[in-house]
C-alpha cells in the first residue's frame, strides 16, 4: 500500500539531507535509548547496586563463618567424643548462621518478583501513564528500540545480579546443606542454583508485559504480583514430574533417607496398583482398617527424588521457566511491533 502510494505521488523523504553531527567528545560509552533508560532509573540503580554489594559481602562472610564453625566444632566434637550429630545439634549454629542463611535465601527467592513488580513493569507503565512515551516515541529512534531497551536493561541487570547472588548463596549453603534443619535442597530449591536466574527473566518478562498492556503503574504491579505468584505455584507443582521419580514400597509408608525428597505417598493394593493417600485419610482406627480392607490395601509407597537429582531438576525447571519468560517477552514484542516499528 505504501509502495504504490509512493510511486503515484513521487514523494520520497529526503535522504542525506541531515548534516552529520560532529562526534561528541563527551559521549559516554552507553548511548541512545540505553542511556535514557539508565538515566531515568539512576536512583533505582544506586539502591540496587548498594543492596547487591551488601548481599555479596554478607554471603562471602557467611560462607567463611559457616565453614570455620563447622570445622572447629567438628574438631571439638571429635576431641570430646561427642555424638555424630554434634554439629547440627548445636543451638548456636542454628540461631547464629542458620537463620541468616535462611533469610538471605528467602530474599534471593523473592528478587525476581521484586524486579517484575517494581522495576520492569513500572518503568514501562509509568511512561505510558504519564504521557512521556509520546516524547520517546516521536524521536528518530523507533519505539521498538525504546521497548527493546526497556526490556533488555532490566533483564541484563536482573540476570547478572541474581546469577551472582544465587551462585554465592549456593556456595555458602553447599557445605552445610545437610547440617541445618529445614535447609535441604528441596526446601530451598527456588533459591539455589540456576532456577532463580530463570525466575528473574520471568519476573522481568511478566512485569514488562503487564506494564505494556495495562498502561497503569499500580494496576500492572497488582497483575504482575498475581500472575507471577500463579506461575510460581504452577512451576512448583510441576517440579517433581520434571525428572524420573523413584518409588519405595513397604508394609507401611516406607522411610526415606534424610536427603531424599519424598513428594508423594499413598497405598499399594493387592493387585499392585497405587492409590492416593487421601483414599483412607482420617477416621478412627476401626474405620481406617475397614477402608484399607475395602480397597484391598496391602502396603504403602513413597515417591521421592534423591539428592543426586538436584541438578537435573534444577536445569529442567530453569529451562521451563526461561521458556515461559521468553514466550511472555516474545508476546510483548509482538504486541509492540503490531502498533509500532
Amino acid at each position: 500500500m505504501t509502495a504504490t502510494a509512493t510511486a503515484k505521488t513521487g514523494n520520497e523523504p529526503p535522504t542525506g539531507a541531515a548534516p552529520r553531527a560532529a562526534p561528541d567528545p563527551h559521549r559516554s560509552p552507553v548511548g541512545g535509548v540505553t542511556w535514557l533508560v539508565l538515566r531515568q532509573h539512576r536512583l533505582t540503580l544506586w539502591i540496587a547496586a548498594v543492596a547487591f554489594l551488601a548481599l555479596v559481602i554478607e554471603l562471602v562472610w557467611l560462607r567463611t563463618a559457616l565453614t570455620d564453625y563447622v570445622r572447629t566444632t567438628a574438631q571439638h566434637c571429635a576431641d570430646t567424643g561427642g555424638q555424630t550429630d554434634c554439629v547440627s545439634g548445636a543451638l548456636e549454629f542454628q540461631t547464629t548462621y542458620g537463620d541468616l542463611l535462611y533469610t538471605t535465601g528467602q530474599f534471593i527467592g523473592f528478587l525476581p518478583l521484586l524486579f517484575g513488580l517494581f522495576v520492569a513493569g513500572p518503568m514501562i507503565a509509568r511512561e505510558l501513564e504519564s504521557g512521556t512515551y509520546q516524547l520517546a516515541w516521536t524521536q528518530s529512534v523507533s519505539p521498538m528500540r525504546w521497548f527493546a531497551a526497556k526490556l533488555a536493561v532490566p533483564a541484563v541487570l536482573a540476570v547478572t545480579g541474581v546469577t551472582a547472588l544465587s551462585a554465592l548463596h549456593t556456595w555458602a549453603w553447599w557445605p552445610v546443606q545437610d547440617l541445618l534443619p529445614g535447609r535441604h535442597w528441596y526446601q530451598g530449591f527456588d533459591e539455589l542454583g540456576v532456577v532463580p536466574v530463570a525466575y528473574a527473566l520471568l519476573g522481568v518478562a511478566v512485569g514488562a508485559t503487564a506494564g505494556l498492556l495495562i498502561k497503569r503503574t499500580l494496576v500492572s504491579i497488582g497483575v504482575t504480583l498475581v500472575g507471577f505468584t500463579a506461575l510460581n505455584w504452577a512451576f512448583s507443582a510441576l517440579l517433581p514430574h520434571l525428572a524420573e521419580s523413584r518409588t519405595k514400597v513397604g508394609k507401611d509408608f516406607p522411610g526415606l533417607g534424610s536427603t531424599d525428597w519424598g513428594w508423594r505417598r499413598g497405598y499399594v493394593t493387592a493387585g499392585g496398583g497405587h492409590l492416593p493417600e487421601e483414599t483412607c485419610a482420617g477416621g478412627s482406627g476401626a474405620v481406617r482398617e475397614r477402608c484399607l480392607a475395602d480397597h484391598h490395601i496391602v502396603g504403602g509407597f513413597r515417591d521421592y527424588h534423591p539428592a543426586s537429582q538436584f541438578w537435573t531438576l534444577q536445569w529442567t525447571q530453569a529451562a521451563l521457566v526461561a521458556a515461559v519468560a521468553v514466550a511472555f517477552a516474545w508476546f510483548a514484542v509482538w504486541w509492540m511491533r503490531r502498533g509500532h516499528r
Binding site: 505504501t2 529526503p14 524521536q139 523507533s142
Partner: peptide, 17 residues
C-alpha cells in the same frame, strides 16, 4: 501518510517533530 509513507515508517520518523 507523511511524505508518502506511513507515519511509523523508519524513513519518516527522523523528519517528524
Amino acid at each position: 501518510e507523511l511524505l508518502g509513507h506511513a507515519p511509523a515508517h523508519p524513513a519518516v520518523r527522523p523528519h517528524l517533530g
